[in-house]
Structures are given as C-alpha cells and as structure tokens.
Amino acid sequence: MELIPESADLKEYLKPTNVIDYDNYAIKNVADSLAYGKLTDIEIAKEIYEFVRDNISNSGDINANEVTCTASEVLTKNHGICCAKSHLLAALLRYKGIPTGFCYQKLYSVDNKIPYIAIHGLNAIYLSSINKWIRLDARGNKEGINAEFSISNEKIAWPIKKELGEKDIPIIYVKPNAQIVSALTSCTDRDHLHLLWKAEIQHIFNKY
C-alpha cells in the first residue's frame, strides 16, 4: 500500500498538541534517556518504538478499565489502547525531531457473535536517512501478534484480511482523529468506550 501524507510539510508532523503533549517533563526525560548514545534517526526510532511497544501495556491485554488519551497520561498510567499508545509514540518521536503521523485500519471483529468493524490506530514515521515513510504498530505483542520495527518489510500487528472487508486507510494524518480523541476523553471507562466504538467509531473513514 502506498502511504499518502496528509501534508507535504514535514514540520507539521513535529508539532506538539494538547494530545501529543511532549512539552511534558516526563516525556522529555524518557525520550532523552532512550535516545542517549544513538547516532541515527533509525536507531532512535527503533529504541523509542520498542519502549512503547514493550513497556507500555495495552489496556485490553491487562484488562485495565481506565481510559487514557494524551501522551503524558499514557506514560504516567503506563497503559493505553492502540490509539492512545500511538499518541505516546508520536510525542516521544516528535520531541526527538522524527516526523510522526497517525494511521488507521478498519478491522473485522466479533462481539457476542455479532460482527462489527473496529478501528485500529498505529503510526507512520519519516526517516530522513532513507527518505522514507514507514508504519509502526506499538499496540503491544502477545500470542499471535508480532509487530516489529522494520524499514523494509512492514511488520504490523494485524495485516489486513481483504476477504473480511478489512481496509488500510492510506492517509498519514498530522493529528489524531478528532472523533477518536473525543471518545477517549469522554468515556468513563473502557466498557463505555467499547460500546461507543461499536456504535459510532466504526463508521469513521467510511469513504475508504
């Protein structure tokens, strides 16, 4: 799949926002520590990616009912769903000068035997040393999921299954999807978020 940047200006993919709040001291401290001694953007990106993938839990995997959203909140609470973890990865990488955007997939899921489309969040980063955008999936590995840092053959959590109607959204967005952010910040717990995800969130990106 050809990735399509929403903006041709790489500086747009370096800006902090209320959600990608890398002005936070803890985020700066972690990013600086992880990048220490690394000489290339590939080395820095790989170290930071693997930290978020492996050291920040996926909320669903640990059955955490609290919902996190902002990068600093995900770092402080030490967990987040896929989209929330993508916010933290973006903050850490943007702070270190690596352009980072947001990508989404529409994945087939089943709840109580009723199928629905789930939105999965991941990142794309621009590596100037190889003049290339690559996608990274910091969701967190477990049995059956083995996402890796790769600059050649993409290794994400869930390669799409077209026969099930799954789709990759090709756009590399500058900011996290506003509707997803609204859901993460308004839901009282993950059970509430799950209901909202099935009722409303699955319908975003319908043009794809």
Rank of each mutant, 00 (worst) to 15 (best):
Y25N: 13
A35V: 05
K38D: 10
N55M: 12
F51G: 06
T40A: 09
N24V: 05
N63F: 13
A31E: 00
Y36K: 15
N58T: 00
G37K: 07
S59C: 08
N63E: 13
A45C: 15
I48A: 10
R53Y: 06
I42D: 02
Y36P: 01
G37H: 07
A45F: 03
K28A: 06
A31G: 08
R53D: 04
F51Q: 04
L39P: 00
A64R: 09
I56H: 03
N24T: 10
Y36M: 15
F51A: 08
G60D: 10
G60P: 00
I27P: 00
Y22G: 04
S33H: 12
K28Y: 02
E47V: 11
E47Y: 06
N58E: 06
Y49W: 05
Y22H: 08
D32G: 04
K38Y: 07
N63C: 09
Y36T: 12
D23G: 15
I27T: 07
D54M: 09
A64P: 07
T40D: 09
I42H: 01
E47D: 12
Y49G: 05
G37S: 12
N55I: 07
I62L: 06
I44Y: 00
D32V: 01
A26S: 15
L34G: 02
D32C: 09
A35R: 01
D41C: 02
I62K: 04
I42L: 09
S57F: 11
I56V: 14
L39M: 11
N24M: 02
G37D: 10
D54H: 08
N55R: 13
R53K: 12
F51D: 08
I62S: 01
D32K: 08
A26M: 07
A26H: 11
G37A: 12
A64M: 12
G60K: 02
D23H: 15
Y22A: 08
D23N: 14
V30N: 05
I56G: 02
I27L: 05
K46D: 12
N58H: 13
A26W: 03
I56Y: 02
L34D: 05
D32M: 07
I56P: 04
D41F: 06
V52H: 00
A31P: 03
S57Y: 11
I48Y: 02
N29K: 14
I56E: 02
N24D: 15
I27G: 04
L39F: 12
A45Q: 08
R53Q: 11
V30L: 14
K46W: 05
N63M: 11
N29I: 04
N24H: 10
I48L: 10
A64D: 12
V52E: 04
I27C: 03
A35K: 06
A45V: 08
I42M: 05
A31D: 03
E43G: 08
D32F: 05
G60I: 00
N63Q: 13
L39W: 07
D54N: 13
L34Q: 03
D61W: 00
I48C: 07
S59R: 01
N55C: 14
S59E: 06
Y25F: 15
I27E: 04
N65C: 12
L34S: 03
L34R: 00
N63I: 11
